[in-house]
Nucleic acid binder design. Sequence first.
DNA 1: CCCCGAGTTCATTTTAGATTGAACTGAAAA
DNA 2: TTTTCAGTTCAATCTAAAATGAACTCGGGG
Lengths: 167, 167
Amino acid sequence: MDETLNGDPHELDPLESQVVDFFVDGVRVLGLPRSIGEIYGLLFISQQPLSLDDLVRRLHMSKGSASQGLRLLKSLGAVREAASGSDRRTYYEPAVELKRLAGGFIREQIRPHLESGKSKITRLSETAVDQTDPERREFAVERISRLETWMRSGGRVLPVLQKLLGQ
Amino acid sequence: MDETLNGDPHELDPLESQVVDFFVDGVRVLGLPRSIGEIYGLLFISQQPLSLDDLVRRLHMSKGSASQGLRLLKSLGAVREAASGSDRRTYYEPAVELKRLAGGFIREQIRPHLESGKSKITRLSETAVDQTDPERREFAVERISRLETWMRSGGRVLPVLQKLLGQ
DNA sequence: CCCCGAGTTCATTTTAGATTGAACTGAAAA
DNA sequence: TTTTCAGTTCAATCTAAAATGAACTCGGGG
């Protein structure tokens, strides 16, 4: 069985593996696991939508990883199901508009942290005003109000970011 | 030896540990190790500059971690050496201006990735034009030019980000 | 109705990278 | 000059998170 002769080789060709590597590095910067980069990278450079089995076979990853990876990518809006062909499988294709990708990442990964940050700061404020030593209390309150300022800046920045990336 | 009576307790008080936790979570979002958040968090809520030994003692971390953590924080411009007192130790205090923190992070952690990304794309372009099948080549070139667009957007966004965070 | 197989789940295993700590450096004190 | 000690280094260890894979679910086809 000579894989170089059929149209469905198991190994990645040089272009494909270069693109996959590019996205593996890319997602690591964003704090996402390597498998996410592998999946998105291969979809990105594929002319045809790919099924879960295609990903498992060509990337040598477990069905579990591929399934969980696709779930996360779908939740980020980075991958969508392609109009299904005749067969039972689901095929996936990448979203390639930066606006959409950034929007999904901000919505799913950044906003939740900003939110939980805000509520932690609320609790921090309460602890700060409980300080018995007045000098200590004043200092703590000042520092924590600074945190609030940081979070407000963060909140203000995100929409601008999305806007700038949408072109 | 009752630690609650002297001014140098080993354990963190509730305010301190809440702030440390806050920063531990915060730096994880940025992809930095927990020890970085612990160190910066304790400095942030301390009224006095702290020495490496203070950090080791109060955070129960090794000298190695504290030393490496301080080095990274200094490189980010997030921590500076305080005007030294009479003794041999170096004391550290946090930088608390968001502009400075964001600037350091962008300079040390984001820009290098953008740069290496650009050079990877250059190599990708070369691989893409090598594709023998014309349809494949056209597709690959189109996708990779999209990557270039993404990187350009990224580069344009950073200065705006810094500007918005500087207030 | 039962079978088939695509896709999911999650307890276990693996791994990347964070942390440790003992040996080392260098500079100030004695 | 020797001693002392703050801080650094890095091989070894540990751990948190990712990947695995076998058991499972569920829907369509026969």
